[in-house]
Design a binder for these strands. Structure first.
Length: 579
DNA sequence: AGGCGATGTTTCC
DNA sequence: TGGAAACCCTCGCC
């Protein structure tokens, strides 16, 4: 399906549309009408209490939206049913939850998207336009030594032109239920362009050739629990490093799956949660020949790539006892390291003088920072994803690192059942402005609640595209763009998808059916979804039993994989046993 | 097929 | 500081 851009109405229109918002929800209800008699809208009027409270909570809100929110607050909260009790706030008179494929927020809660009180997601201006509230960056005015480094060494790498974005918007191939637990990380092989590596919550490592769709392996004996990060060895791309919540870093041969444990931070086994170390961030500094990784107590470790031995003492780089979530080495300046953590900071370090408290910059966030990445080409910008539902861009050259140059509200809440969302750069975009990130909240797409993957232009805050597939009903928190081709890999629940740009011309291209492999309990016959237990070779859409056709595409070709790898028990071998 | 519950999480008190 | 609550647009399993 083509990338869908959201309604492009500008903000003032939103105020007016507040009325239409309720129309919107009721219109989606119209669709549902057939089966949802219970809810036949008695528009309730006995909601004075709630209404008052909405007005109260209104007082605490911020700034520019006042006018708008006043309008909003005069209206009654969205009211669904009289008898029902809201599962969120336990009050009567309204009910939060899905109404058909549209989710109705509890009006007593702050907006689920921007976290401001006084309105719900439905009427949030950020929902209508991602660029809402994105203001021009403050110009830099401070100059210190780091600024000088950036100016001298990074600025020449900044490209001038901004090309048209190419969006991979159609599922080209997939392995459905590839992993036995949800996917936690993805990494394209840097030189073997068809190889995608994936990690899951169980610690398994997937190696998949997505062009020869059936060539896939899962190594299950490398880690004991969550595989948090994969990095290929730039000096030997047949070998990869992985960091896991089991407290080990492994060095694994891609072909054989034979791995060497470089370090085990829990040599005495499980002694309780206060001592169990987990490794999240991992990166390789090729110039310095070190693998760096960090644990959930705030410490950074280094391993010498030649001797595979730990170097020196661990260094406290984030608040003691707090998790270091991510690490990234600057692609241009090998001395610069970026870290982010649960202490709400992303920090820039000089590798030459790495010691506690010596960070060059501390980038403050309101909540936990899920990820922080230098821009891939110039290394001069920083992209962070924070649990306050905001993507931030920090520009070391055109802005100041004292405050973000962009703050884009985007739905990527923390949820214990989901891998943390991470906004990722497009490594091919010479303008370093295209970013991909999965979306938490769903959109009612022809009667189905889908969670798109968003492409955002961080130079404007605009949503360039939102891609989705009617068969993918699960959230896709893990996304990676290919380093050389217009390919997106997304991880959603246990499945992995490869997206490519849709053919522009409808000319006779032999309608190459998309290649989908189904693993796991594919023998079930009752579902139609990619993410759930199903095979989906029939096309008639029973997605939400509303009789609406979600897609006019031809049936997918589905094949059940029975391939097994002898040496290592793979997931599909397990499932084929069951068969 | 509906409901239960897992969850090495984060926040708040 | 440690323990409990979180109310959430999950997902897989019984």
């Amino acid at each position: 399906m083509a990338p869908q851009t959201r309604r492009t109405s500008s903000f003032p229109k939103v105020v007016i549309e507040r009325d239409t918002d309720s129309e919107e929800s009721s219109s989606s209800e119209e669709i549902d009408d057939g089966d949802d008699d219970a809810v036949d809208q008695e528009e309730e009027s006995d909601e004075e209490e709630e209404e008052e409270e909405v007005v109260k909570s209104d007082k605490s809100k911020g700034n520019e939206e006042k006018a708008k929110e006043e309008i909003v607050s005069k209206k009654a909260p969205i009211t669904i049913s009289l008898k029902k009790v809201c599962k969120v706030c336990k009050r009567k008179g309204h009910e939060a939850g899905f109404k058909g494929a549209t989710y109705i927020d509890c009006p007593m809660k702050p907006c689920f998207l921007c976290k401001m009180p006084g309105h719900t997601t439905m009427s949030c201006p950020h929902r209508v336009a991602t660029e809402f509230g994105v203001v021009p960056a403050p110009r830099r005015n401070a100059h210190n030594s780091l600024d000088f480094v950036f100016e001298r060494q990074l600025r020449p790498h900044i490209p001038k032109m901004k090309p048209a974005f190419v969006i991979p918007d159609e599922v080209q191939s997939a392995v459905v239920r590839y992993h036995s637990r949800r996917v936690t990380c993805l990494e394209f092989h840097p030189t073997k362009n068809n190889i995608l590596l994936s990690g899951d919550k169980k610690g398994q490592l997937g190696v998949w050739d997505f062009e020869k769709v059936y060539e896939k392996t899962v190594y299950g004996d490398i880690h004991g629990c969550i595989l948090n990060n994969i990095k290929l060895n730039p000096r030997n791309d047949g070998m990869l490093y992985t960091a896991s919540s089991d407290g080990t870093v492994s060095y694994t041969d891609l072909e054989t799956g034979i791995s060497l444990s470089l370090t085990n931070l829990n040599p005495d086994g499980w002694q309780g949660p206060n001592s169990w170390k987990m490794l999240y961030g991992l990166d390789i500094n090729s110039e310095k020949g070190v693998v760096i990784f960090a644990d959930n107590f705030g410490y950074l470790y280094m391993v010498d790539m030649r001797s595979n031995s730990v170097m020196g003492e661990p260094i406290l780089i984030h608040k003691k006892g707090s998790k270091v979530v991510g690490l990234h080495c600057n692609p241009i300046q090998p001395d610069l390291l970026l870290s982010c953590g649960n202490d709400h900071f992303a920090r820039i370090w000089d590798m030459r003088q790495l010691k506690t408290g010596s960070s060059l910059y501390d980038l403050t966030h309101k909540r936990v920072v899920n990820s922080a990445y230098f821009s891939p080409l110039s290394g001069s910008k920083i992209l962070t994803t924070s649990q306050d539902n905001r993507i931030r861009v920090w520009d070391s050259i055109f802005g100041s690192l004292d405050s973000p140059s962009r703050e884009i509200v985007h739905s990527h809440d923390f949820n214990r059942h989901l891998t943390a969302f991470r906004a990722e750069w497009d490594p091919k975009d010479p303008s370093e402005s295209l970013v991909v990130v999965g979306r938490y909240i769903s959109e009612n797409y022809n009667g189905a609640a889908l969670h798109p993957i968003d492409f955002i232009d961080i130079s404007t805050g605009q949503l360039v595209a939102e891609v989705m597939d009617p068969n993918i009903t699960t959230i896709s928190p893990v996304n990676k763009l290919h380093p050389h081709y217009d390919i997106l890999a997304s991880g959603s629940s246990r499945s992995i998808f490869i997206w490519k740009p849709k053919e522009k011309t409808e000319i006779e291209q032999p309608k190459d059916e998309r290649k989908i492999v189904v693993c796991g309990k594919a023998e079930k016959k009752n579902g139609k979804k990619f993410g759930g237990d199903s095979d989906f070779d029939s096309d008639d859409d029973t997605h939400n039993s509303k009789g609406k056709n979600l897609t006019s595409k031809k049936p997918y070709s589905v094949s059940i994989s029975c391939s097994t790898k002898k040496k290592h028990e793979t997931y599909e071998s397990k499932s084929s046993k069951k068969r």
